[in-house]
Amino acid sequence: MSSDSRKADIIRLFNVSKRYGAKLALKDISLDIESGEFIIVSGPSGAGKSTLLKVLYLAERVSEGQILIDGMNLARISSGKLPFLRRRFGMIFQDFKLIPNRTVFENVALVLQVAGEKPSYIRKKVMHVLRTTGMEKKANHLPPTLSGGEQQRVAVARAVVGEPSIILADEPTGSLDEVSARIVLDLLLEYHRNGATILIASHNLGLLDSDVRGRHVALEDGQLKGISTMLC
């Protein structure tokens, strides 16, 4: 890898392993992800897809190896600095992880509130993002009153509202019907076209039929089985 391309690398994994007791969830993973890339991490259940994402946003610490994000070594990130690292990510989960007793607007606004943004900016920005995700009219609804697809669109809105450089999505379409899954993936592709680096852990590759170039990272039993370029 040339020094120029290394500069563009936003995420670098060096021989990363993650152990849960005796079980190795990730085995010796090395991977470079460039800024603005679209990556699909696939594999069967238990392959280590979610674990890979978890070690990236530091929900888990690696057992061995190192991860650099924009040159920052995650092993050296103290718990006090962790929130600031997480603000660089937008995260989407299969179970949406929305706060049930807060409205759609409040759920999305939370990202900007924790970052200390002004209320007027928050209002403007959140409404804009809700408009782009088609959830503007549901701004005052509570998540449990929405369909799965709508909840995931809210989760996408929350993931992108802070304009993060990296979006991590763990099975974002896993619990959605085909139409909703298509809408969510299209939204992610749109943010990718706007320059965001996107990592999706998914077993559903069939939906990726648009014209975005990316890479497919295959995992099996926590090991890297192959990396291929795809025209998704």
Binding site: R87, I99, P100, L110
Partner: peptide, 16 residues
């Protein structure tokens, strides 16, 4: 607890 967990995920500090 869920709310706190989500807050942490989106980058809330312990103080927040």
């Amino acid at each position: 607890r869920t709310e706190v967990e989500i807050m942490r995920l989106v980058g809330a500090t312990e103080g927040f």
